[in-house]
Nucleic acid binder design. Structure first.
Lengths: 149, 149
DNA sequence: AAGCAGTCTCTGCCTCGGCAGAGATCTTGT
DNA sequence: ACAAGATCTCTGCCGAGGCAGAGACTGCTT
């Protein structure tokens, strides 16, 4: 039998975990993407390259699971990276349904070169927290530089 | 001078806050949307109705800020709700740039009727946590019922 | 051996949301 | 009074990602 953390009578949207998750996303991911705006690659592209670089993923469906996308979208993502010469597709010899992905030297170089951007981004984001020793206010500012909740 | 929580030499993607935020989103929001699949309204539609119902927002730009969307997308969202007869637009008398939004009786009823769905959803999601007294594993299962990381 | 279910990749179609520009209106400064 | 800037809404255009279906392949069952 389920606990009832939320009830319709007492529900306050802005205190709910759903609202906070959504907000957390809205306040971070777009900023991260913005740091890639001058690049011919998107933030998502970079994540894909990194997961290949680190051996976390090896195929299209792997990557789809990792990114939380469907395989159709992922196929197209891989198309873009392949056409830029950052990775190569190679049909698996043992299981011929699978297309193995591997970074080219260029892909490896790009992935590595863009790492500092993301490090800086998250360090900037988290900067305000340590100063306040994680004494987060109830539901107010989650991330530095936000407007009012 | 910024603290350096993350460094390129030690960065582990799956331990990073960015990865976890993204994952938290991917594992919750789509499930919430699924609970509205049988409805002629989307989860986002419902959130818009609720924020009007509770007086959190009153105009298009209000709503855009609340949802974290741009005003263009929000205009179209409002179009859809208006054409379904769930809200009405009325030009503000004092500031004629503004279009005030207000729920119709039908809109109010729909918003209220759909509340239990969302309550149940979050209660279901959180159920596993209390059992474990919030002893979350390092980076593994964040939400009940997920596949492996 | 043959069928059947499951997996993997790819494609076409569609919706959602971001971006940029336009027109109307308000506010502020001179 | 008037210009300049800001704000609000709306539109057209575009890319990203979800969904459904197809074709190729694997592995299990009978």
């Amino acid at each position: 039998m389920a606990k009832r953390y939320y009830r319709t009578e007492t529900f306050k949207a802005r205190r709910s975990i759903g609202y906070l998750i959504r907000r957390l996303n809205n306040l971070t991911i777009p900023h991260a993407q913005a740091r890639f705006a001058d690049q011919e690659l998107s933030f998502t592209h970079w994540i894909a390259l990194m997961s290949l670089r680190n051996g976390i993923t090896h195929s299209c469906s792997d990557l789809a699971r990792h990114l939380g996308h469907d395989t159709g979208a992922t196929t197209r993502l891989i198309d873009q990276l392949e056409s830029r010469g950052l990775l190569v597709r190679r049909r698996d010899a043992d299981d011929r349904r699978i297309v193995n992905l591997s970074l080219t030297a260029a892909g490896h170089a790009v992935a590595t070169a863009l790492m500092p951007r993301t490090m800086e981004f998250w360090n900037d984001m988290l900067e305000g927290f340590a100063d306040r020793k994680f004494k987060a206010p109830r539901s107010a500012v989650l991330i530095r530089g936000t407007t009012r909740v």
